[in-house]
Structure formats: structure tokens, C-alpha cells
């Protein structure tokens, strides 16, 4: 069951490589922002599951919504001549690191407890 997401990732990468999908170069920056947003959501989801506050509806809607909004924000910024994508990069980047840090801490906590139990 745990390996299902990893399998999904592998399948997704395979589809992406095999399928002849190309995005016009001008939109490729939006895709990269969307990827960042998606990564952020994934790590947010993992963290929530470790905190036992995971809600699949929130997670799924957050994933697609964040991804779209990030791309949209970058697009609007491009139209206005404001580097709004930087805001998205900073916001998502900071959250990404925070989430990873929390996940790491929780993992260490659990490992510590298990060791205590073992003793």
C-alpha cells in the first residue's frame, strides 16, 4: 500500500517520457511553477498524514487548485510585468522546506519511540 504512490510516480514519469507531449516554450515557465506547487502539496500531504490530520478531499483539491493558481499567478505577473512567479517560488519553496523539516522530525521522533519500546 505504501508503494502505490511510488508506483504512481514511476508510471507518471514513464507516461511523460513516452507520450509525445510538448508544451510551447513560452508556457514552460508556468509548468515549472506548477511543478513546484505540486511538490509542495505532496509534501504537505505527507506531513498531514504523519500529523494524522490528512483529509483526502482537501489534499486532492489543494493539489490541483494550487497547481493551477500558481501557473495563473505566474501568467498574470507576466502580463503585468511583475515577477509574481518569484512570489510563488519563495512561498512554495519555504513551505517545501518547512514540510520536509517537520517530516524529518516526526520520523526521528517515531524512530526514537520505537527504540524505547524495544528496550
Amino acid at each position: 500500500m505504501i508503494w502505490l504512490p511510488v508506483l504512481g510516480l514511476v508510471v507518471g514519469v514513464a507516461i511523460g517520457f513516452v507520450a509525445n507531449v510538448t508544451i510551447p516554450i513560452m508556457y514552460s515557465s508556468y509548468l515549472s511553477i506548477a511543478i513546484l506547487a505540486a511538490l509542495d502539496t505532496v509534501f504537505g500531504g505527507i506531513r498531514a498524514s504523519l500529523d494524522k490530520t490528512f483529509d483526502s478531499a482537501v489534499f486532492l483539491s489543494g493539489f490541483f487548485f494550487n497547481t493551477l493558481i500558481a501557473a495563473l499567478l505566474a501568467y498574470i505577473g507576466n502580463q503585468l510585468g511583475v515577477d509574481l512567479y518569484l512570489a510563488a517560488v519563495v512561498a512554495f519553496g519555504v513551505r517545501l522546506f518547512q514540510n520536509i523539516a517537520v517530516i524529518r522530525r516526526v520520523a526521528f521522533d517515531r524512530a526514537g519511540k520505537r527504540r524505547l519500546k524495544g528496550n
Binding site: L9, G12, V21, L39
Partner: peptide, 23 residues
């Protein structure tokens, strides 16, 4: 639910990453 939604999301994420990488 967690595993399923994570799988769906990571599928989409993997796809996007692969497309971007190719690009």
C-alpha cells in the same frame, strides 16, 4: 484514501516533471 490520493497526485506530478524535463 491517503495511498490512493497520493498515488493519483504523484502520477500527475511525475507526468509534469517528465514533460518539463524533456522540454
Amino acid at each position: 484514501k491517503l495511498a490512493l490520493s497520493l498515488s493519483v497526485v504523484s502520477l500527475v506530478l511525475g507526468f509534469m516533471v517528465a514533460v518539463q524535463y524533456k522540454q
